[in-house]
Amino acid sequence: MNNNANFISSKAIYKDVIFEGKCIILGQTKIGSNTIIGEGSIIGYPTKASIKELIKLKEVSWLKYDEVSVGAIIGENSIIRSGTIIYEHVSIGDNFEGGHGILIRENTTIGRNVRIGTNTVIDGYVKIGNNVNIQTAVYIPPKCVIEDDVFIAPRVCFTNDKYPPSKRLCGVTVKRGAVLGANCTLISGITIGENAVVAAGAVVTKDVPSNVVVAGVPARIISTRKEFNDKKSMWEIEFT
């Protein structure tokens, strides 16, 4: 296949979309109006099962990929930056903004007003709510759930296998309004409660209650969310 070629499926539905350069749009992809698609992006990439069948038939081309892909859905007023790959069976709401080189695999649902940073990997079968901010180089594996209004700092690592490698996968759930600090690690199966804060570098091995701050390895409660907010407010006043 020629990765420098531009291929936009005849089945794709889009209007008032700006393609910054050469892109691949596959299957019945729907792209909302006032959206920008960055150069080198691929939307509607087929799943592994579909590609394996094409390899068996020795029919690997964008045209064949287009035939098997059901496409993806991208909402209005979105920015898909260069090098992004979005698989088929992905649905993204309005006002999405992504960095460069993002990977979003199949059966991922993303709500409205979501930002995802450069080089983040969402490895499929993930649910993300509205108004979520995911920063650079975050990894989110299958079966994870992120509710509305969550902030995820750079290089946070979610896990879904407590004793790897195993066949018993269980994702992490992050409840509404939680904050995850840079480089923290969340162990398979835990729940981060509403408005909880996980400090930078923490390793979270068990459920975190709502409205608390945890830190350390393993993470333990060190304060309340109210105390965190009070310190944040004082810091912001001091540097205003």
Rank of each mutant, 00 (worst) to 15 (best):
P154A: 08
I110D: 09
Q135L: 14
Y163H: 15
T159V: 09
L180Y: 02
D207L: 11
V126C: 13
V132K: 09
I116W: 05
R176K: 15
T136P: 00
I187A: 01
I190M: 04
D161G: 10
K162Y: 12
T118Y: 03
R105Q: 12
T191Y: 06
C184Y: 00
E147W: 07
N113Y: 12
V138R: 02
K206Y: 02
C144T: 06
Y163T: 14
N130F: 11
V121A: 15
V121K: 10
G201Q: 04
P142A: 08
E194D: 12
A219M: 01
R115H: 12
I140M: 03
Y125P: 00
I128S: 12
C157H: 12
R220W: 00
N130S: 14
V145D: 04
T159K: 04
D123F: 09
C170F: 05
R115V: 11
G124D: 13
L180I: 02
N160H: 01
R155N: 14
V150Q: 10
G216Q: 01
G124Y: 14
I146K: 06
E147M: 12
G117Q: 00
V213E: 06
A200M: 14
P164I: 15
T173S: 10
C157P: 00
T159G: 09
I122G: 02
V208T: 07
Y163W: 14
